[in-house]
């Protein structure tokens, strides 16, 4: 076969592959996402995936509790659990059992660990004025879990026991020992996301939007969550600067978040709703 034939054949192959890629497949991925391939999309969630998510979330929750102790106040913890579990009935993940806790720190933040483990800090509860705002924070964290933000970021999934996977694993050199050896590394990485790097901008904005929708579905004032973010943004002084640091480092700016919330409120017509804030009950159970 001469060179000309080769080049012709090669160009024909390239043309075939190029034509097969329809414009509909072109996305506007940001630079960091550009390299992701179709094969790296999350496939259908299996029972094994949920088990892996819960096991992983339990490990990560233990890391969080290793960093901050639980706040020793049964009344407050029970109240937060009741509100949180009530909200979780509006989530699309009935297979998860959500658990809520208060962390004994003045830091202003809340954390979500895969599998249903959610923590809110005492510092945040001190700023919150009513039950609707508390619901907004918890709903934001529930959204991180239901949307599997950390799970997708770290590609956590159960074992694939199919024959094809077994053969490929054998060729590729994967073993159960190697699986175990990297588990700890992934928990380390998740801790870094929670305490240092934060989730993706779009994940936080999406969680805010879902939070607003969730609390309005539950009968709370949908504007309460936005009001809380505005209040935190206004907090000045050395004390608040220190206590807001992790929140600021790991989340988009309050300006961007409030702007996105205003958009969802306008789009969904939530401004017109006259729903409850439930201030008195919050003050009754949250005595810090």
């Amino acid at each position: 076969m001469n060179s000309l034939k080769f080049i012709s054949l090669a160009l024909a192959l390239m043309m075939f592959v190029s034509c097969a890629a329809s414009p509909a497949n072109v996305t506007d991925d940001p630079v960091k996402e550009v390299r992701k391939r179709s094969s790296q999309k999350a496939m259908e969630i299996s029972h094994g995936d949920v088990e892996a998510e819960i096991q992983f979330g339990r490990e990560l929750a233990a890391r969080i509790l290793g960093k901050y102790r639980l706040y020793d106040n049964d009344t407050a913890n029970r109240y937060v659990n009741v509100i949180g579990k009530g909200l979780s009935t509006f989530s699309p993940r009935p297979e998860l059992e959500f658990k809520f806790g208060i962390l004994n720190t003045d830091m202003i933040n809340a954390f979500a660990s895969p599998g249903g483990y959610i923590f809110i800090t005492k510092g945040t509860l001190e700023i919150i004025e009513n039950e609707a705002q508390l619901a907004g924070v918890l709903a934001h964290e529930i959204a991180h879990i239901t949307e599997r933000h950390i799970v997708r970021e770290l590609d956590i999934k159960g074992r694939d026991d199919s024959a094809a996977a077994g053969f490929a694993a054998m060729l590729g050199g994967g073993t159960s020992e190697t699986i175990r050896s990297v588990f700890t590394q992934i928990v380390d990485k998740a801790s870094k996301i929670l305490f240092e790097d934060g989730l993706k901008f779009s994940d936080e904005i999406d969680s805010d939007a879902l939070s607003v929708m969730m609390i309005s579905n539950a009968g709370y004032n949908p504007l309460a969550y936005k009001k809380l973010l505005e209040d935190i943004a206004k907090k000045k002084g050395a004390k608040y600067k220190k206590n807001k640091k992790i929140l600021s480092d790991t989340h988009p700016s309050f300006k961007d978040r409030i702007k996105a919330i205003n958009k969802i409120i306008a789009e969904e017509g939530l401004n017109e709703l006259d729903y409850a804030n439930v201030k008195s009950r919050y003050k009754k159970y949250i005595k810090l």
Partner: peptide
């Protein structure tokens, strides 16, 4: 001068590929 082609089948955590390369000159 060579041409190449391959196909990969992905499972949830693995991939298996079959490919061919042909060169001539």
């Amino acid at each position: 001068y060579g041409i190449t082609a391959s196909v990969t089948r992905f499972t949830r955590s693995s991939a298996m590929t079959f490919g061919v390369n042909y060169a001539s000159g």
